[in-house]
Amino acid sequence: MNIFRLIGDMSHLLAIILLLLKMWKTRSCAGISGKSQILFALVFASRYLDLFTSFVSVYNSVMKIFFISTSLLTVYLMYFKFRATYDSNHDTFRVEFLVIPVGGLAFLVNHEFSPLEILWTFSIYLESVAILPQLFMMSKTGEAETITSHYLFALGSYRALYILNWVYRYYFEGFFDLIAVVAGCVQTILYCDFFYLYITKVLKGKRITLPA
C-alpha cells in the first residue's frame, strides 16, 4: 500500500458516499445516469469475486464488501426507491456498445485465460468506460448539480491517483500491470474535459453548464 493508492481509495469512497448523500438528502436521482451506476455495480461484481478465494488484507476485503454493497444500494435507490425522479429520457447511452466490445476484448487481451482473470480484465476495461453514460447524459442536459460535480471529481480523481500509485509501484516495487495502467489512463483521460470545467467553474462557485 502507498499514499497514492490510499488517497485514491478514499477518494473513491468519498465519491460513492457523496452520491448516496445527494440521493438521500434531495430524495432524488435527477442528473444521475442509472446506466453508469449499473455498469459500476457490474464492475465491482466481476472484479471482487476473489473476495471468497483469495485474502489480501482486512482493508482489501472490507473495501470490496463496501463497494459491492453501496453500488447495489445505489442501483436500488435509482431504479426502485427514487425511480420517479430517474431521468430516463436523458439517460439514453447504448451500454451494449460498451459491454459487448469490452467483453470481447477481455477474452482476447488478458494476463491468463482463466474465468476469474477474464472477469477481472473485463471489469478493468469496463470501469474505464463506465462513466460514459453519465458524461453523455450531462452533455444532453447541459448542466450538473454542484454535488454531482463533486461526486464526479472524486470519482475521476481516484483513478488519476491510481496512476501515480502505479508509477510509485513500478519504481519501488518493480510492479507493473499493463492492462490496469492502459485502462486507468483511458479512464482518467475521459474525465479531462470535466476536470477542466470543474476547476474553472465549480471551484469558483458557478454551476457546470456543458455545451448541450
Partner: peptide, 10 residues
C-alpha cells in the same frame, strides 16, 4: 512484469 498472480489492488 506482474509480480504476484493475485490482484492486490481494489
Amino acid at each position: 512484469e506482474k509480480l504476484e498472480k493475485e490482484h492486490d489492488e481494489l
